[in-house]
Write a protein that binds this DNA or RNA. Sequence first.
DNA 1: CGCACGCAGTCAGGTTATTTGCAGACAAGC
DNA 2: GCTTGTCTGCAAATAACCTGACTGCGTGCG
Lengths: 223, 223
Amino acid sequence: MEGVWTIALCEDDEALRSVLARAFRAEGHSVVLARTGQEAVRGFPSATPDVTVIDVGLPDSDGRDVCLALRAAGLTTPVLFLTALDALHDKISGFQSGGDDYLTKPFELPELLVRVAALARRRAGDTATNRGLRLDPDRHGVALGERAVALTPIEYRLVGRLLSRPGEVVRRQALVAAAWPPGASVHENTLDSYIRRLREKLVSLDGPPGGIETVRGVGYVWR
Amino acid sequence: MEGVWTIALCEDDEALRSVLARAFRAEGHSVVLARTGQEAVRGFPSATPDVTVIDVGLPDSDGRDVCLALRAAGLTTPVLFLTALDALHDKISGFQSGGDDYLTKPFELPELLVRVAALARRRAGDTATNRGLRLDPDRHGVALGERAVALTPIEYRLVGRLLSRPGEVVRRQALVAAAWPPGASVHENTLDSYIRRLREKLVSLDGPPGGIETVRGVGYVWR
DNA sequence: CGCACGCAGTCAGGTTATTTGCAGACAAGC
DNA sequence: GCTTGTCTGCAAATAACCTGACTGCGTGCG
């Protein structure tokens, strides 16, 4: 896994939705769910996901309209369409309503995961620069200009989560959920230890001061 | 259309090849053609295309091996695989042998054009070379200057995958997928053993130190 | 046939990096 | 000044990896 992302999923089928959500979480990503197009349009923009997966065949509206509505709401994340329709015009119109990829049901789970990863990676390349600091998937670390440090898997997922939305407070609980496998029992203090070590590694890059700030009683922010 | 590119196409079927070539040219791109994997490996690197399209089912070799060979030869362009196989493992191993997209025959021409355009648009910048080490397909081994060592099939595919993206961490899972036939059950430790044997063989070439570095909890990098 | 050989896969034990938990110092907010 | 939550340094526990040796399988050769 190259990074830690937030994935928005809009799917009406109960079974499929939970399978996909579990699969994404198993890879360490956070998931935002919606059952209907309406829910998606209401919920996704504020979640600012890294990738959006939308079922075209929603009960209340066409997934492509949802995509357009999301774009209109200012969401710029890549969109992958999921659909039972495999006629050509559907694919093309999927791409043309702002979609970035297209997958026909039935599909195999790993293929979806791979494609989602490809989309997220592309986006990360576009935007993951925060004051010069960027996640470096190649080295599995972070880099600032020339300098770079390697990170352990947990550290990597932690910065990934913080960097993904600069200026936004991330709750301790959310960080734990992002960095540890689901269901892991994590001692309160363990997170503190990691933050400490992260800060240590980050100063070794000696960029401008700042970085991980703590918000007492809530969590941490990247600034 | 956003630009004019050079597209390399490796396809053995006469009819399909000319249809595709004509379609690409109709959009204003230049096209470099190859009938066989051998031709592709010889011709594509010097053509430095923006996108490479490879048929997996070539008569003389597996398209994925062609991809590995091209990558080893220093070609960094995105690769789109074309294939009649739509079984899952084929798709996955396509992605993991360094492919960037995958299209199953029969496909509709506009879809291919759209995907090729997407790849060309996000074409990555050039990357580093392999410090003189290169894959030697004839001997089925690796060579550094004068010296050369032979490799077993699995070893060969492993270095191939590592060399294909120097400096980029390759996950254990991806290495397994690249080196073993799909669905093979590979004991955790088996990969370790192979890496060990590879390192052993590589020091016998006594080039500069370095080579395969391990990234704990993730995979390995070629440096 | 019987043997040697190279390749592939396994195992057990040693060696590290990573992860976790503790316990005391510190700082913020009431 | 007291409580609560966070920081820090450290050491134990764990998991990942390395290593060397061993087994089984097939191929080719005498």
